[in-house]
Amino acid sequence: MRLTSLEPNHPAYVESIDWNAMSEMDSRRLRELGLHEGASIELLHRAGFTGRGAYACRIGRMIVAMRAAHAGAISVRTGAE
């Protein structure tokens, strides 16, 4: 399941990340923001009246804002690690 289809406030785990879907700079920044396979992740908010804005998600203990393009590159799995 993509992070974009995850129910908000339902903790999950990062299963895989399509690093090729983003620039090298962005993939490095996301790694620095704590994104890695197996990290705990949770969708918290979506910005905008129309619900088409950026996503805010918890990665580990950090809250990270990203656009749909990046959130869509993250595959998640609910349940135990």
């Binding site: 920044r29 996301l30 809250i63 990270v64 804002a65 990203m66 393009a69």
Partner: peptide, 8 residues
């Protein structure tokens, strides 16, 4: 560009 930001 992209938008990647920590919300402290």
């Amino acid at each position: 560009g992209s938008f990647l930001m920590e919300l402290p």
